Simulated scan of single mutants.
Amino acid sequence: MHEGFGPAIRLAVLTVSDTRTKETDKSGQRILELAAGAGLGIAEYTLCTDDAEAIHSIVAGWLLKPGIDAILTTGGTGIARRDVTLEAVRPLFEKEIDGFGELFRYLSFAEDIGTKAVLSRAAAGTSGEKAIFVLPGSTGAVTLGMNRIILPEIRHILHELTKHR
């Protein structure tokens, strides 16, 4: 339990994919599984296609909901034409957490991706008292981002965002 966040930090999870369903969404399910294992709650979980307006609308709506502390997206972070998650979400950042993407790419490079890590556009930022994490769509990337960065730091990040209360 973390002071100021009740029994659990509550996450909203968005999977961005033109082909996945809740039944086939291994990356989204992995986020839910790792979050539950860390004692975090899930306030929302949905999927949408690689459509910038839809992505932006869902995340912007979640930013207005008081029962959500952090938003995680998975998918649409590459360099292909249909990869628009970062373009849809970045305008919602009040502050970008540059170190998240830098560390994510470093860990990806060091662990097994090698120089292909330069293609990752994983990012994070804040909006009001909420944190937003934009993760790649692979299960390995989600596992790395959750285990190595998000889960160890989420309480500290949210503390920093809310300590002025």
Rank of each mutant, 00 (worst) to 15 (best):
D51V: 14
D51K: 13
D51M: 04
A52S: 15
E53P: 03
E53D: 14
A54P: 06
A54G: 09
A54H: 10
S57Y: 00
I58L: 15
W62S: 01
L63T: 15
K65Y: 05
P66A: 11
G67D: 15
I68M: 08
D69P: 03
D69C: 02
D69G: 09
D69V: 02
A70S: 06
A70W: 01
I71G: 01
L72V: 09
L72T: 01
T73V: 10
T73S: 14
T74G: 00
T74M: 00
G75P: 05
G78R: 08
I79G: 00
R82L: 04
V84W: 03
L86R: 11
L86Q: 10
E87Q: 13
A88N: 05
A88E: 02
R90V: 04
P91T: 07
P91A: 07
P91G: 06
L92I: 05
E94V: 08
K95A: 13
E96A: 14
E96R: 15
I97V: 15
I97R: 03
G99P: 09
F100C: 09
G101W: 06
G101K: 09
E102H: 11
L103Q: 12
L103N: 07
F104R: 08
R105E: 06
R105L: 10
L107C: 05
S108E: 01
E111H: 12
G114E: 06
G114I: 07
G114M: 07
K116N: 13
A117P: 08
S120A: 11
S120F: 07
R121H: 12
A122D: 05
A123Y: 05
A124S: 14
T126G: 04
T126F: 01
T126Y: 04
